[in-house]
Design a protein around this nucleic acid. Sequence first.
DNA 1: ATGAAAGCGCTAACAT
DNA 2: ATGTTAGCGCTTTCAT
Lengths: 334, 334
Amino acid sequence: MARIRDIAERAGVSSTTVSHVLNGSRPVHPDTVARVRQAIEDLQYTPNMLARSLRRRQTNTIGLLISDIENPYFAEIAYTVEKVAYERGYNLVLCNTDESHEKEVRYVEVLFAKQVDGLILAPVAGDHSYLAPYLARGERVVLANRYVPDIVAPTVIADDEAAMYALAKRFLEDGHRRIGAILGMETASTTLERLHALRRALAEYGLSLDDAWQFRGQSRQAGGLAAAQAFIALPPAQRPTCVIAFNAVMHDGFLLGLADLAPALLAEVVTGASGSSLLARLCPSARYLVQAPSHQIGRVVSNLLLDILSGVTAWHTDCIVVPCTLVDLKHRPA
Amino acid sequence: MARIRDIAERAGVSSTTVSHVLNGSRPVHPDTVARVRQAIEDLQYTPNMLARSLRRRQTNTIGLLISDIENPYFAEIAYTVEKVAYERGYNLVLCNTDESHEKEVRYVEVLFAKQVDGLILAPVAGDHSYLAPYLARGERVVLANRYVPDIVAPTVIADDEAAMYALAKRFLEDGHRRIGAILGMETASTTLERLHALRRALAEYGLSLDDAWQFRGQSRQAGGLAAAQAFIALPPAQRPTCVIAFNAVMHDGFLLGLADLAPALLAEVVTGASGSSLLARLCPSARYLVQAPSHQIGRVVSNLLLDILSGVTAWHTDCIVVPCTLVDLKHRPA
DNA sequence: ATGAAAGCGCTAACAT
DNA sequence: ATGTTAGCGCTTTCAT
C-alpha cells in the first residue's frame, strides 16, 4: 500500500505538501498539485484513515447501541441514523445489546477504546452510572428511546406518556370500562410512564387499574403469549373488554396466543399497542396503534450528536420529546 | 486520557513491559504485573485501539454493506453477522447502500481507507469490476445474497433457483395453468435465476410464461403496487390464477394494491413469494412462502470471512449455496 | 525479566 | 509556496 511518502518521492515534494494537497489545508502551486495528483493516480494511493484519525484525534465514526436490529422499530432508527451519518461524513458501528446490561457496558468500553467520536445509546434496563466516568472525561453520549434518571446526557424520547393517555382515553370514550394492560420490563422508564398515563386516564373516570388485568412479563413476544394465557385463564365475566399492550412485539405475541388458544376471543377483545406501523400490520385485529416516531427519533438524535461533535450545538442535558401518533387502524384505507 | 507511558512511569517500568502485561505477550514478573495493574486501575487507563491497530495492521472491524436495514430480510442477516462478529471479537460497520451503485463504491473505498479487516457485501445490481484492484492488493471481500459474475470472491447465496422451481411446481400440481410473476430488477442474478426456474417448471407441463403475466418494476413495494394495477387492467378471463412475487416486499405491495383497488380479487388469486417470514405474515392471504435462509446466510458468510481473516480457511472463490424452504402457509398452525 | 529505540502513516506547528 | 521535524499511542525487534 502506497504511503504519503511514496507519493511525495514520486512527485518530488515533501510529505507535508502531499498532505496539504490531500486536505486542501493550505495553498499549493497548481503545477505541484498536478504532479501530486498524478502520483496519487499512478500509485493508486488511498489515505490511511487510521493514521489520520490517530493524529487528528477524530475518527468520523459513531456508535449505535440498540437492543435488537430485527425489531422494526430499531431498524427504522438505525436506518435514519445511518442515513444522516452518511450524509454528514460519518460511519456507524452497529451494536446489538440484546437487552443485556453486560453487553452494553462492554460495547461502550470497546467503542471508546476504538475512539469513536460519539455514541447513540438506546439504554437497556438497569443502572447506567457506569457512564459517568466517560462523560466526565468528555466523551459524547446521547441517549435515545428511554430516559435514564441516573445519568445526565442529552436524550431523545417519544412522548409515550401522552400517547398512552390518549389511547386509554379513547378506549374509555368508546365505552370500555375494563381495560387490561400488557406491561413490559417494569424497570424501564417507558413502562412506568405508560402505566402512569393509563392510571391517570382511568382516574378521570373514577376507575383504577385492576391487578388481575395487569399482565407482566418480558418485553418480547413470549411476554405477550404469557399474557394471552393469563387472559384466557380469567373467568369470562371478569375479563377486560379491551387490552393495551405496551409494545408492539408483545402485542403481536398476545394476538398470536389468542389466535392459537382461543380464536373466538380475537373478535371480542379490542387491542391497542405502541410500536412501528410494520408490526401493527401483523395484527389485523388490532384497533388502535400508538405509532412510535422511530424515524424522527433517529433523525433528531443523530443530528443532535453530530451537531455537538461539530460544535454547532453546545453540550446540554435537555430531554427532547417527540410526539407519537394515535392511529385508528379501522378508519384508514386498507 | 492516560497513555501507556503514564502507566509505565507510575509503575516504574518501561512502556514495553506495560504493553506486554496488557497483551500477555511475554512473561512478566508477578510483582511487576501487580504494580502495572494497579497503575492501570489508578489512572483509569483504556488502550487506544487506533494506535494499536495502526501498528498491528489490524482493526478487528469488518464492514457490512446491505441495501436496506429496514427490510426484515437484511435486518436478519445484519443481526446474525453482528452476533457472530461480537462473539469473535470484531465490530461491525453498518452501511446501507440503498441499492445505489455509487454509494456502494464509495462505501467500499471508505471502509478500506479505514482499514477494516474485511467486508461482507450484498451487492447492488450493476458492474462490480471496481472491486478487482482491492482484491488484487489482498483485501478480503465476501459476497452475500447475490452472485456476481464479474468478480471472483467467495459467495454465499440462497438456493433461489431450486426454491422458485419448487414453488412453480407446486402451483402446477395444485392445478394452476396460468401463473403470473412479479419480477424484480432484471439485472440482478437472483431475478434471472428465478425466472429461469419458473420457465423450467412451466416447460415440464408444456407451458410457457405469457408476456402479459410478467409484471416488471422496481424491487420495492411500489413495484408490487404497479403489478397490482397491471393485473387488474387485464380482462378477467385473461388473468393468471396465481401469482408469484420474486420478493416479499413486492408481494406485500401487490396485495396492498389488490386490497385497495379490487378487494374481491384477494380471495381469488393465490400468491407465493420469497422473503422473510415476518414479511409473509403481513399478507394473510398468501398461500406459499419461499422462506429465505437469512440467518443461515448471515452466519455462514460472517464465519467464512472471519475464518479467512484468522487463517483457518484459505482464500477461495467457492459459491456456497444455502437451501430455501417452501412453506405452505395454510397448513401451519395459526 | 526488562528496556531502548524504531516506526506504523499521517498532520501541523514552526520554519524558510 | 514549500520543507523540517516532532509527535499521535502503541507494538516489537533487538539488546542486556
